[in-house]
Design a binder for these strands. Structure first.
Lengths: 158, 158
DNA sequence: GTTTGAAATTTCAAGCCTAAACTAAAATTC
DNA sequence: GAATTTTAGTTTAGGCTTGAAATTTCAAAC
């Protein structure tokens, strides 16, 4: 009738990991939701569009469709649609690739560059304010932990 | 021409916060993507369906549509569709609420409970393995940091 | 009791997302 | 150089997501 354990403890770490995962999901989701809200409210755009424009902004020569989908880790067909809409709004262009008639390069228009520059500035500030609860030490230790996490996952999932 | 600063440094913290945000997004996204993959591969289901079933599993009496959408923080119309599909698969039921002819309660069927129990066990193990890169100290410090983060956000966004 | 306003849910339009099928154009192999 | 395979991209079907409109019912005020 004592409190002695009958079997090796099944690692409460497992429960702690699940709880941390839920917290991680919650925190990330809240920040992301707020960023989406503001992108919508301030610039009438979306996070996926912003992400594609961010990728294009770093590549003045433009990026092939497949390069965009690799960098953003989303499917190929997805990019087709998002670039369609950017083109339709005059923010991006599709350019044929000289040597390869299968390939297309997407590139920001001057208007697209201008619009993105504004959005990027605001975005950086928003993130700064939203994460203001974390000081320098937090940032450093969390960065290390997240690196451990992603490092482990890469092993876990081959 | 010296390296003297002309103005108060614009806080490199802001850049560090942006970089941390990207890391957070990446780590969370990778874990989430892997969980989705496995839910699909092992149980032919999706994360949203799993989340709804998890909410219902904690409420044997069932939950009103609006209660589900509040707990999961997704829109009302969204839940309609997900519950539709759960019902169609025989995992959940819609029950009329006696006192209020507007309201509906969703509840797991016995089959739904059974199916979910299996999924939940696997899910907990998956998370444990995916987060195995974090030890007890990591979990504790990260939990505290994430709480600071969400605490601050709640103030930031009213 | 009727009107008015609020609440619970569904429906709808639009966008995001994926996996799989499809098309067209290389690149390789024989 | 013709056949095969690979690669780039789009299309399609199905599901998730939201915000806004529409429905039905309830509650409150009158």
């Amino acid at each position: 009738m004592s409190a002695a354990r009958q079997s090796p403890v099944p690692a409460p770490l497992s429960k702690a990991r699940l709880r941390l995962w839920l917290r991680l999901l919650k925190a990330t989701g809240e920040v992301e939701a707020e960023l989406r809200r503001r992108l919508r409210a301030e610039f009438d755009t979306t996070l996926p569009r912003f992400d594609v424009m961010a990728a294009l902004a770093r590549a003045p020569e433009g990026l092939r469709m497949s390069e965009i989908s690799e960098r953003l880790r989303v499917s190929n067909g997805n990019i087709t649609g998002i670039v369609d809409r950017l083109v339709q709004e005059g923010l991006a262009l599709r350019v044929a690739v000289p040597g390869d008639r299968r390939a297309m390069v997407a590139r920001l228009t001057p208007k697209g560059q201008e619009v993105f520059a504004e959005q990027a500035t605001a975005h950086e500030q928003w993130v700064d304010h939203l994460l203001a609860g974390l000081d320098g030490d937090d940032l450093a230790s969390m960065a290390a932990q997240l690196d451990r996490l992603t490092g482990h996952i890469r092993k876990e999932c081959d």
